[in-house]
């Protein structure tokens, strides 16, 4: 399940991430307080305050654990860009972002075809022809199973309405 999580000292970027969690928890607590303040103990803001306080407390404990880990850690070879967000991952996340933005505009079929083709080509590395064949095959199966068998309504695409 937890493929990338390895117990190997401090992971690159872990300290920054834990600081971000503390900042997020403080903001969440402040926003929770803004819901109903301290008007009473059964007000709608109480439980969010309890949850964000738990987040804040646990993120501080995580930070304390990391600080002691940092002192004992001998690791200095790993890098955030190489180990945590390698270029290939960043590109795929970019593809997904373009895909989810494009889906309501150009529809499920075209956006998925473009996404699958680009991702297969990048990750599978068997050339454009093989990627195109695989895209066509897998998209046909997904479309038939979900649109025809499961009757799922797939995005039609606002820009191409009436064209197909």
């Amino acid at each position: 399940m937890n493929g990338a999580a390895k117990d190997c000292g401090l992971r690159p970027g872990e300290m920054v991430f834990s600081i971000a969690l503390i900042v997020f928890s403080v903001t969440a607590f402040w926003q929770s307080y803004a819901i109903s303040g301290l008007r009473g103990l059964s007000e709608p803001g109480v439980f969010p305050m309890l949850a964000s306080a738990t987040m804040l407390l646990s993120s501080l404990v995580i930070m304390r654990d990391l600080t002691s880990k940092q002192r004992s850690s001998q690791e200095g070879q790993s890098s955030f860009l190489r180990d945590i967000v390698p270029f290939r991952l960043l590109v795929v996340v970019g593809f997904i972002l373009v895909y989810v933005v494009a889906m309501p505009l150009i529809g499920f079929v075209f956006s998925s075809a473009a996404f699958l083709f680009a991702s297969f080509w990048l990750l599978w590395q068997k050339g454009p022809l093989m990627s195109a064949v695989l895209t066509a095959g897998s998209l046909a199966v997904v479309y038939l199973v979900f649109r025809k068998v499961f009757q799922v309504v797939l995005p039609g695409g606002s820009l191409i309405q009436g064209i197909i």
Binding site: V92, I96, Y99, V100, M103, F108, S112, F115, L116, S119, F120, L123, W124, Q125, L134, S138, V142, F146, V152, V153, L154, P155
Partner: peptide, 17 residues
């Protein structure tokens, strides 16, 4: 390399549905 893009497509369709 084949599974990951397919999971993304299924996830997007599933959420949209």
């Amino acid at each position: 390399a084949i599974l990951i893009p397919l999971i993304i497509v299924l996830s997007a369709v599933g959420t949209y549905a």
